[in-house]
Design a protein around this nucleic acid. Structure first.
Length: 418
RNA sequence: GUGAGCGUGGCCAAGUUGGUUAAGGCGCCAGGUUGUGGCCCUGGAGAUCGUGGGUUCAAAUCCCAUCGCUCACCCCA
């Protein structure tokens, strides 16, 4: 038997309501902030991600789905959303639009990882990017958008964590400082950190290993070693966040996995601690557009894991609002009535009423059971009497009320129901 | 890539000191008299017990291998 590939899932009809609940809210909030939707290809030139995310990151080194197509082009299924959006910004000359350009996307993301709770090989992200403005006010706007969306969805007790990792002026000096500090503790840190010390020093800070905690606790803080412009930006960010009333905590250990981040990095986490818990992660990437051959252009954005949102909605007992649409089942008795039912079903749908016609001939009891089973709100019954009189039985299943309605009035009656 | 747990009908599962037709529940289908649901009652369909091999007179139950799922690490949304 075939199965969905490892780390992928089917989103069945029964799940669609919860998905719509999230994606619709995301769309509405994004558009209320003036963001326009962008859809980019599922795959891109592999080099886009190597240059954008960074060659020595785990994502690019071992988590991409990369393949050569029949024309020998090397392509990669997108492992994140930002690089593609920036490529599109450059390709379509969006620097000629009023800056910043505000964009959002909802799309599948692919990473070859071992699946576990809250982590899939194909997952979905809602993300936004504001490209073309370096002001900390935009940082606050982006963060607020994410926060308001989670609020709108009904999640509570979330924590917003922020940090600044500096820019190309001040970060190298800080990284050196951090390395020097760790050089004095090589014997007490874990193996992973020995490796991180060489390969990705900033990640030393979010090691979860027990033995490394004392070392992390005394490590120098990035925000204490920012250059003047970064310092100002960092201070302004907090001012703006306070202005819009977002509660935040400064997390000196917060760093992110992509090379392109500069200055502001942030994440939003649910109250239950655990692995894979981050539901929103993002930051500023002022050097990325230039890295991708565009003019030097600042930008900031975030990614939000939709599956993780859904897990937290379930965990917090938030249910998707019922959509309350009318749905009619057309029941029939006898061959002639069935013919009429097929015709009526077609007319109902063309008139804007969702309708299913019971297939085959079954007892009325069975047809009624079927109608409730598929979630019909109403039932129309056609038998010999109805064919003769032209008045059909219309039953409201929830109210258990039934009446005779002239055939020609069925569409208008149902359209005004609910 | 590393470590741990688990794989019995569509779903949830009982059964593991090896031994007659592999429980039960949900769901599905039908019926409970003549054209009416959601509750209830009755009946029915549906499993080569993940797969392959081995031990044995006999294996869902023991052994080996393999695949898959889940969780944790790594990393990230």
């Amino acid at each position: 038997m075939f199965r969905a590939p490892r780390g992928t899932t089917d989103i069945l009809p029964a799940d669609q309501k919860r998905w719509r609940h999230v994606t619709e809210a995301a769309r509405q909030v994004a558009e209320s902030f003036g963001y326009g939707r962008i859809d980019t290809p599922l795959f891109e030139d592999s080099k886009l991600f190597v240059r954008g995310i960074g060659e020595v990151t785990d994502i690019v080194e071992k988590e991409t789905y990369t393949f050569e197509d029949r024309g020998n082009d090397l392509l990669t299924l997108r492992p994140e959303g930002t690089a593609s959006v920036c490529r599109a910004y450059i390709e379509h000359g969006m620097h000629n639009q009023p800056q910043p350009v505000r964009l959002y996307y909802i799309c599948p993301i692919f990473r070859y990882e071992r699946p576990q709770s809250g982590r899939y090989r194909q997952h979905h992200q809602f993300g936004i990017e504001a490209i073309g403005d370096a002001s900390a006010a935009i940082d606050a706007e982006v963060i607020e958008l994410g926060w308001r969306l989670l609020e709108k969805l009904g999640l509570h007790d979330l924590a917003l964590r922020i940090n600044s990792i500096g820019d190309k002026e001040c970060r190298p000096a800080y990284v050196r400082l951090l390395q020097d500090y760790y050089d004095g503790h090589v014997n007490t840190i874990c193996e992973d950190c020995q490796r991180r010390l060489q390969k990705n020093p900033l990640r030393l800070l979010d090691c979860k290993n027990e033995q490394c905690q004392p070392v992390i606790a005394k490590a120098p803080h990035g925000v204490d070693h920012l250059c003047e412009p970064c310092r100002t930006h960092w201070d302004e960010l907090q001012t703006f966040l306070n202005a819009v009333g977002l509660p935040f905590e400064i997390d000196n250990r917060l760093v992110r996995g992509f090379d392109y981040y500069t200055r502001t990095v942030f994440e939003i986490v649910p109250p239950v601690e655990g692995s894979q818990s981050t539901i929103v992660g993002g930051g500023r990437y002022d050097g990325l557009i230039e890295e991708l051959d565009g003019n030097p252009t600042p930008g900031i954005g975030f990614g939000m894991g939709i599956e993780r949102i859904l897990v937290n909605l379930d965990r917090q007992g938030v249910e998707a609002p019922s959509e309350g649409d009318v749905k009619v089942a057309v029941l029939h008795l006898g061959a002639e009535a069935m013919n009429e039912a097929v015709r009526l079903g077609s007319e109902l749908r063309q008139g804007g009423v969702a309708a299913v016609v019971v297939a085959g001939e079954r007892s009325l009891k069975s047809q009624m059971r079927y109608a409730s089973g598929v979630g019909a709100t109403h039932v129309i019954i056609i038998g010999e009497d109805e064919l003769r009189s032209g008045e059909f039985q219309l039953r409201d299943l929830a109210a258990s009320q039934q009446s005779s309605v002239r055939r020609d009035d069925l569409v208008s009656t149902l359209l005004s129901a609910h």
